[in-house]
Design a protein around this nucleic acid. Structure first.
Lengths: 348, 348
DNA sequence: GTGAAAGCGCTAACAA
DNA sequence: TTGTTAGCGCTTTCAC
């Protein structure tokens, strides 16, 4: 592969336009304080030479990088089984692009990578980080906090920063509210034996959905709650156990769409009709799953792409409003929670 | 958000270790030509100060960035409906990490973004690019070629660089061979009316799979080939039409798993048994789809993660072997094609 | 083997 | 408003 040819520098543009480097720099960076005829001449020179600023040189002096790291800490391959991150990435990417920032993707494969990521973030290569911290026991958030990089979390982290310290900034869906809506919908259908198959309870989203279920069901029969893991296989297994335990169950709120898929499969296998015998609701509204399953799944939708967009906006906004001295206080509410909506299809 | 504290520089490490900046630099970059006792002293100083090299300063002089752009050009949201890219990203990320390279993700949203991406690549911000060019009429590959950045494509591009020019470097799956294996398997089952529902024919993968089908079927009844678009909905529609046209069809090779999903749904709806009445094979082996559908799908697997890893390796390898002068010729075979394997489940 | 010094391309005071 | 100048932190000849 041939080496890239050396690119024109500010110097070259300045020479061609017959001005100083400083003037070219000003024009390139917005053009304030340069009189029009001159500015125009510079722009033409830039155009003719195909000049593109050298980001490394710029960063060296400004100490800004116009780059944001997206850290996805997920040892499990499972994450890639649903388009969740892809959608979030899309939202993030759109927002970053709009602000001329680059997206540096950091995928971690277990604990071994944590040190690497921490070092990278601490190394001041990026202006901020967007972190998806999925498990309660994950040491990464702590490491990142120590690295001192402005950070926005995707999903509510499990620690709350006691005392006077400002809590972590995060964006989440209203998991609890969505769960309540789902269960209320089932109750509104006249169902009385409403079960919940949870997600992996080491993730706040699963805990919050369970809490939402309990908000509505109160002290319902505890045998109606089964712990699972957000997978279709897990959903199947839990559903089998549920039917053995409580053959009279008439509705299931599954922690996510994949789990609901497993539930549906077991129901079909046992010859139970959906929703006549058992109504089923999922969570996420991952389209290829929810829309394509049989029957189409009633589920709680979260706007995943918007979550991503918002995370980026929060990070970028927080950074630009605070001009370095840190006078401006953190936003009052460190967490932003996006609403969820119930999507009615055929399964409930 | 508070500004990051200023990090220790080479200078600081040098002072602490009682050596010159040059010596520290040597140690940090591999330590060749520095005597052991000194090197050790430097390493300790680095450790104590928590020194991390400033990448911008380094790039400014070396003109290397240790960063690779991954360009995913996909206007359709559909892409995110399957975990294909996520897996590929994982493979890429692993390989880049192993070589201490960063991954800069460039997502494009239609043509408007092409110029931005081209400018970025031409701007010399990264050492190379990994490009997923999905549609035959995509102008992006051309722009990228002009930008003069070392590039490896994911999936065979549609142009072949006539004349003496070296063809584009790419990594692909053996779509044609996989298709042949699928169709042969169906034939081996004694099926004689084997249909093919194609993918979007503006993508080489769809064209290659169709070619594979034809390799085996020769001049079969042309009514057995239906053009579709890699989606479940498209698969449904095509299958309905197929059943109307050729009620005697006894096997379907679908261009991918999602299409197969649609096929299965129509079959069930019409009361036809799989595989007894109609055998079905998909392509991709996207697990949550293929494994979870009913009946579990026989399909052609491609090792997606390995494709990603290989793309990165090709890019990095090509770069390091050629020491800047470009003496070394391009590899003889510009394209690497990974094998596919038939995974037998219940549907065929 | 080690150090001194010259920049890489850019921005940001400061002068004019 | 425009130009001059001094670095940003690092690598890399080139002397020693």
């Amino acid at each position: 592969m041939t080496e890239a040819v050396s690119r024109p520098t500010l110097e070259a543009v300045a020479a061609r336009a017959g001005v100083s480097r400083a003037t070219v720099s000003r024009v390139v960076n917005g053009g304030d304080g340069v009189r029009e005829p001159l500015a125009e001449r510079v722009r033409r020179a830039v155009e003719e030479l195909g000049y593109v600023p050298n980001q490394a040189a710029r960063s060296l002096v400004t100490k800004r990088h116009d780059a944001v790291a997206v850290v996805i800490a997920e040892p499990e391959a499972r994450v890639f089984a649903d388009p969740f991150f892809a959608l979030q990435l899309r939202g993030i990417s759109k927002e970053l692009t709009a602000h001329d920032n680059q997206l540096v993707l950091l995928l971690t494969e277990g604990r071994a990578d944590h040190a690497r990521v921490a070092r990278y973030l601490a190394g001041g290569h990026v202006d901020g980080a967007l972190v998806f911290s999925l498990h309660l026991d994950d040491p990464l958030p702590g490491l990142i906090r120590k690295a001192g990089v402005p950070t926005v979390f995707g999903g509510r982290p499990d620690w709350s920063d006691g005392d006077g310290a400002p809590g972590p900034v995060y964006v989440d869906s209203d998991n609890r509210g969505g769960a309540r809506a789902a269960v209320r919908h089932l109750a509104g259908l006249g169902r009385t034996r409403i079960a919940h198959i949870t997600g992996a309870l080491d993730q706040t989203s699963a805990v919050d959905r369970l809490d939402g279920y309990r908000d509505v069901m109160g002290d319902a029969d505890p045998r109606l709650v089964l712990e699972s893991d957000f997978t279709a296989g897990g959903g199947e297994q839990a559903m089998r156990e549920l039917l053995d335990r409580c053959p009279d169950v008439d509705a299931v709120f599954a922690a996510n769409d994949l789990t609901a898929l497993g539930v549906l499969r077991v129901l079909r296998e046992r010859g139970l009709r959906v929703p006549e015998d058992v109504a089923v609701i999922g969570f996420d509204d991952v389209l290829p799953v929810a829309e394509e399953c049989d029957p189409p799944l009633t589920t709680v939708r979260q706007d995943i792409e918007e979550m991503g967009r918002l995370m980026a906006r929060l990070l970028l906004g927080g950074r630009t409003e605070d001009g370095g001295a840190g006078e401006r206080p953190e936003p009052a509410a460190p967490g932003v929670v996006l609403p969820t909506t119930l999507i009615r299809r055929a399964s409930a």
